[in-house]
Design a protein around this nucleic acid. Sequence first.
DNA 1: CATCTGTATTAATTAGTATAATACAGTTAG
DNA 2: CTAACTGTATTATACTAATTAATACAGATG
Lengths: 133, 133
Amino acid sequence: MFDLDLKSRIPIYEQLVEHIKEMIFQGVIQADEKMPSVRQLASELTINPNTIQKAYRELEQLGYIYSLPGKGSYVKEVSEMKTEVHVSALKEDLISILKELLFLNVSKDEIVGIIDAVEDEIEEVNVDENRSE
Amino acid sequence: MFDLDLKSRIPIYEQLVEHIKEMIFQGVIQADEKMPSVRQLASELTINPNTIQKAYRELEQLGYIYSLPGKGSYVKEVSEMKTEVHVSALKEDLISILKELLFLNVSKDEIVGIIDAVEDEIEEVNVDENRSE
DNA sequence: CATCTGTATTAATTAGTATAATACAGTTAG
DNA sequence: CTAACTGTATTATACTAATTAATACAGATG
C-alpha cells in the first residue's frame, strides 16, 4: 500500500504526508473515516511510531485530518479544511513548474491535455463511489 | 538579486539551483552567457564557496550549465539540454499538484488561466529581448 | 480491568549541510 | 613569464535534522 523509500533524501514522515494526502485526494480514504493507528501503521511499515506520529501531527497542522486522543485519527471534511493557504501555495508551485515546462518547449495544448486526464481520473473514482453506495 | 533564506529547511545550495533555473527560464541569463564565478558569487552572498560549487555541480549534472576549468561556468543551449528526463519528472509533479488543486475545488478554467498568464509573461520577456538586439 | 488509542519526553545514532583552510591545474591579460 | 583569475578537490570541524529506542501518561472501550 505504501511504497516508501528509506534511502530517499526526502524524510520518511514527509513521504507519508504526501502519500496520505494523495489517498485523500483520490478518495481512497474518505471524510470522517478512521485512519490506521500510529502503532499499527508503524508495525506494518516496520518504522518507528514516532515517525508516524510526526506525519500525523503535520497532517493535522495542515488541516487534512483531526485526532481524538484515546480514539484515533480521522480525515476531515473538505468543507472544513482551510483551503486558502494551500491553494495559494499550490498555485506558486504550479507556476514554477509551468515556467519550466514551457521553457522546455512543452506546448500549452499538451499541458491542458494533462489537466483533462487528471480530471477524468477523478471523475472515474467518483463514479465508482456512487456505484458502491 | 538572490534572496536566500539561510534558516529555511531547504538547503542553500538547493535554493541556489532553483533560483538559477528560474533565471534561465525567464531569460535573465541566456545561452552561453558566463555565470558569476564560484568565489565571486560566494563573497557577494557571504556564503562558503563550497556551497556555490555544490549548486553549480548539481546544475551541471542536471544539464542546465557547463563548466570549463580555468574559464568559467556557462548556460547551456536549450537544444543541448537533455529535456526528456526533466519533462517527465515535471509532468509527475504537475499531476500531483493538479490532483490537489482539483480536490480543493479549483476549476479547470482557473488553472488554464494561470497557464495563459505564465505564457504571456514569457512572451513579454522574449519581446524585450528582441527589442534590445 | 485489560487493551486499545493519541501524545510527550529523553537519549543516542546517523546523515546531511555548511564552514574553513588549503591545494592544484588550466586560462588569460599585462 | 607572472600575477590573478577560473573550476575543482580534499580534509576536518561544527551544527542541525531525521530516525530509532525506550518509556510514560491519560482518555476510550469492550
